[in-house]
Amino acid sequence: MVTSSFKFSPVRLARNNSGLLILACPPCRGRFFAISGSTPYFQGVEDVQVVTKAEIMDADKMRRALTRVAHEIIERNRGTDNLALVGIRRRGVPLAERLAANIRQIEGVVVPVGILDITLYRDDLTTLAQQPVLHKTEVPFPVVGKRIVLVDDVLYTGRTVRAALDALIDLGRPAWIQLAVLVDRGHRELPIRADFVGKNVPTSRREVISVHLTEVDGLDKVVIGEIIE
């Protein structure tokens, strides 16, 4: 089933129905990039179609996975002392809030949640035809000495996490930084691994993982699609 189709003209920003951004980049000579933690980048393609292949998580599966991850976080950290969650904009934020809610249910403790905007730490800023809009980083607690769990939706090349680590460390010196993701789809380009994973999904680089969250997209699901050239 074809869910969306894009024809690219110079400096064109498009969004498919799963909310991922794809943009053409004329200065990059016909390359364009999908910017989302859940999509690959690809080159030299003129016409792109994303075909949904399967739904790999529904709302129930996602809820169970997040409950398990919350337990694992508590267990690994031997409780919630000094613990804080920091979500990476954008879908990492609602995920961090859900994990905090789960931890509160399990332990009866309110764990602080922060929001990290990594825009200024990206390694690709000058290659994007259109800059991402800069948002505030909101970490309303000192990170010094904290055990921080970074939260994002999909772990792929690892570059987002690399940027997030730099951004976080510029705020202070945490005692420990761990990483929680809803989906790990492999293909790392940096020596980074997740401490907590909702679901491991082996993928090819041509495939697209789209995470939908109620807070952002109106429903909870994870789908896998494929890019057709």
Partner: peptide, 18 residues
């Protein structure tokens, strides 16, 4: 800072995006 950021956002070099 905002202006420097916005004016430097144009593309010259390559890079991958996660």
């Amino acid at each position: 800072m905002a202006l420097l950021y916005l004016l430097m956002g144009g593309g010259q070099s390559h890079g991958t995006t996660d």
